[in-house]
Design a protein around this nucleic acid. Sequence first.
DNA 1: GCCGTTTTCGGCCCGACTGTTTTCAGTCG
Length: 590
Amino acid sequence: MSLNQNAAALFARIGQMLELTGGDRFRVSAAAKASRILKGLTEDLGPIAEAGDTKTLVAIEGIGKGTAGKLVELAQTGTISEHDELAAKIPAGLMEVLGIPGLGPKTVKLMWDDLKIESVADLKAGIADGSVEGLPRMGAKTIENIVAAIEFMESSGGRLHLGIARPIALRFVELMKGVQGTSRAEFAGSIRRGEETIGDIDILVATENPDAAREAFTSMEGVSRVLASGETKSSVRFGIGELGGRFKDLSGPKEVQVDLRIVPAESWGAALSYFTGSKDHNVALRKVAIKRGMTLNEYGLFNNSDDPGDPIACESEAGIYAALGVDVVPPALRQDRGEFTDGHLPHVIELGDIKSDLHTHTVDSDGKMTLLESATIAKSRGFHTLAITDHSKSSAVANGLKPDRLLAQIEMIHAFDESFNGLTVIAGSEVDILVDGSLDYDDDLLNALDIVVASPHAGLRAKPKQATKRLLKAISHPAVHIIGHPTGRLIQRREGLEPDMNEIIAAAVEHDVALEINAHWLRLDLRDTHVRAAVEAGCKIAIDCDVHQPGDYDNLIYGVLTGQRGWLTPELCVNCWDHDRLHAWLRSKR
DNA sequence: GCCGTTTTCGGCCCGACTGTTTTCAGTCG
């Protein structure tokens, strides 16, 4: 594990443990912030911290002297003494109790101090024997909520994938739009920002009939429990099983919390901005407001005075950003990763900019569609180019093509292309990058292909140095256009390779190779922070759906959101190029 | 613990909901 990820986990834990020991709340949030920042960095701080270079470390926003010192300590000794000291005082099971929704540090500390509750099991026993009931402010209703929350936590195995949560959010939005009196409905929160995993779903509604909205929301089919139903906010648990069996092999949450916010139509923009977040972005945005003598809340942007009067801006997000004198920040960029400090924002890619898919499979390997079926969908989406890239011979389980079958397929695709007016279909392959970095076909065959996507499929537990070497060798092969899902990670399932991304990106720039954002929501590989580093280096990026079945084309949005989160522009994304420019680039490797 | 157009001290975003309270604490986002 890299120092960043290791440190991020430790600081997150330090923050939680400080809460439980009654530490200063600003120190708590500083530790949590340090954790988030470290998670989002692209450059590994390992060598810097090991060298004791605190000057470079404190230059990072949110990292001060204290955190820098602990990073150095971690790099040099393998541990942070503050963490170990806290961990010695706090039972491990207590952290799990803190994870129960609705239970915060105050309550957990009280239970620990007064009742010696040190685990979820202790808490259950304390509820059963009535001792928890004896605590101050602990009534029957609160205990009922804790029992339900424990059940929820035990049935939910972590966060939801974006590709599962977003369709649910869209269903809620459609439902709310159909309720009488609704003028606007939209999802906000982490789904709108395109985060790769989702904690809960936020739905925003502007309506003349709040009671009808609330009623429709809490009684939607699939709602298993109503947690709250107030004037402006309702919360429910929604059963994911209702979606059917397509994701049944995915271990994950069985339920998700969905929040409905009913907001005044006139402050729609302020509310949408507020509930889209991220939290860090909101804090940064409010600081911009404060600097300008204004106050920002979910109702609007106001002058800072005793009698603020009418808002300066509130109806649209764009109006609020404009009134604050900053660029409008697309939702995916709202991460507090420099969107206010790096001058003007780039024009990031949008779904409509994508004009080709360069990584798709057919029935010839492990796809479910024929060439004709896939090409028909590609054409209906307005693409000018479709690359067929079935698996190579070593991917036996995926029915990879032996050389003779590939030669026959190339011939077939080239014949097909002439008959499918308006869409150029090109012959390619998703060629395995073998463990030693060599490719799965000989050079003559590779050069017979219009496009080569080289991807790692096996040996994904290799050490970082070996992984770097392997990918560098593939990148330097003159026939390769794109490196497919470069790390091979599966979100919440498999870590994948951890190569030195800076070296990979530099090599890709040197050899004119594009790195892929695989748009499948289980992959999103490259991930957002890697994309950001690649974009900063001027590296070409491909966004492809890795199509196996018809619905996979719909995954494109997840790839685009990931690109946006990495500040990707159409100029650097080969799928956004027009026909002639794309094909000139492809031919330049032949 | 972090930070600085009030710069090495003294602040640190802001409001809703619940459940338990007679005015508010705790939690969440």
